[in-house]
Design a protein around this nucleic acid. Structure first.
Lengths: 225, 225
DNA sequence: GTAAAATGTGACCTGTCAGTCATATGACCT
DNA sequence: AGGTCATATGACTGACAGGTCACATTTTAC
């Protein structure tokens, strides 16, 4: 957690520092991120930085908090389109709403996901708690899905969590990487083409790649959220 | 590519350098890997290092080559148990054979996959060619599967490639991370429990998480490779 | 045996890093 | 005005990075 001095700062200065940190982590990841550059880009002195934060981890933790708040704010008004969604529909809605958020705040999303997804694997101890929260939420979802008879009870919960997390990360990473190449990411994410791509990916998560007797390939067009 | 001087070295010394490099990349990834440490651990001088290699990328390229050769060697004798496997059975065999290899050569696997999977995302240009090879091979496989009627023709090939690559990476990463915690990784990988876990994951890739009329959860036990 | 070519070496270069600290500034209180 | 206390600063430290180079040693060629 940043020190009190940081929060005493005028809003403007705090923003400048936060933005510089976002850019730094987004561009370099955690390991290679340089406090010297953050300091230079936010036009504060090195000494001041250490009055505000303990160290690199501390400033990144601040970004996690900021992201969390932005998300809370963003999702405040949003509700799923219906209360009767099954788990897969709900997951689909969640993914899509998540993508909307990401395209609205692409840089901080990039910064955090780069560090957590990628380097988090190897610096597990630094951000392990944060990861565990996500896993717990997904496990809850799966258990509910099993209780509702939407997922087979013989499915291992941990395994299903891994599958959903893998999908969620893969889709996010894919969309984020592609989206950052566009000039208007938000518009691109909302385009039917992109939405269909997401639909297809989620469809494969539900029904798999294997050709079955079911209406593979056509059902995308039907009643999707 | 390493310089000629490197290949003139006595086998023993070359091994020492290679092993030190493997340890370094496995422990620190590409960015944080230190040439100074490699040099210290292989007991050569800094100057010598630069007689053998251009730079850090060069020594990593050498590891890629070594891995490729080891794999060739390893798979030389191995053939799928039958010539009539469908694409999914073949993929399953490939993944499992890959796991066997990984558990036989865990350190170099860890080194290479850490760098390619994780940092490769952000240093795409450094190792992009290598990645493209994998994608091409998978695309070929999918097209064949579609031609054989095993995968629906309406499936987007690139999308299917992404799915298979994601799965393959997810499984590899999972197995490697868990396996490295065991005292005998090879034994652990070969255990029925682990094999079943892999089966289940691949099953989900084929048929998805969604509960269907099919015999989900029981079919693992049936005629798997 | 000797000259030439190849290989080996580590001190040294420049640059960057995280982190510290003596000192300066300025806001607020009495 | 004088005193106090939070905040701001950037030169400085020591560690380590990648990379170079003049020189020492060994191998090869004749």
């Amino acid at each position: 957690m940043p020190k009190q001095t940081f929060f005493n700062l005028p809003e403007e200065k705090r923003q400048a520092i936060t933005n510089a940190a976002i850019d730094e982590f987004a561009d370099y990841g955690f390991e290679a991120a340089s406090i010297n550059r953050i300091v230079a880009n936010s036009e504060i002195s090195k000494g001041s930085f250490y009055q505000y934060f303990e160290d690199k981890r501390d400033v990144f933790m601040h970004l996690l908090k900021v992201l969390e708040q932005e998300k809370m704010e963003y999702f405040k008004g949003k509700r799923p389109p219906s209360n009767n969604l099954d788990t897969f529909q709900y997951f689909r809605w969640m993914i899509k709403a998540g993508m909307e958020f990401n395209s609205a705040y692409p840089r901080i999303t990039q910064a955090v996901s780069r560090v957590l997804l990628v380097e988090g694997l190897y610096y597990g101890k630094l951000f392990g708690d944060y990861h565990q929260k996500t896993l717990d939420a997904l496990a809850m979802m799966i258990k509910q899905a099993i209780a509702r008879g939407e997922v087979d009870p013989s499915v291992d919960v941990d395994l299903a969590v891994m599958v959903m997390e893998t999908w969620s990360n893969a889709i996010s990473t894919y969309i984020l990487n592609e989206g950052l190449k566009q000039k208007d990411m938000m518009k691109w994410v909302r385009s039917t083409k992109t939405q269909q791509k997401i639909d297809k990916l989620l469809y494969v998560m539900e029904y798999g790649l294997r050709k079955t007797e079911s209406e593979f390939g056509t059902s995308f067009k039907k009643e999707r959220i």
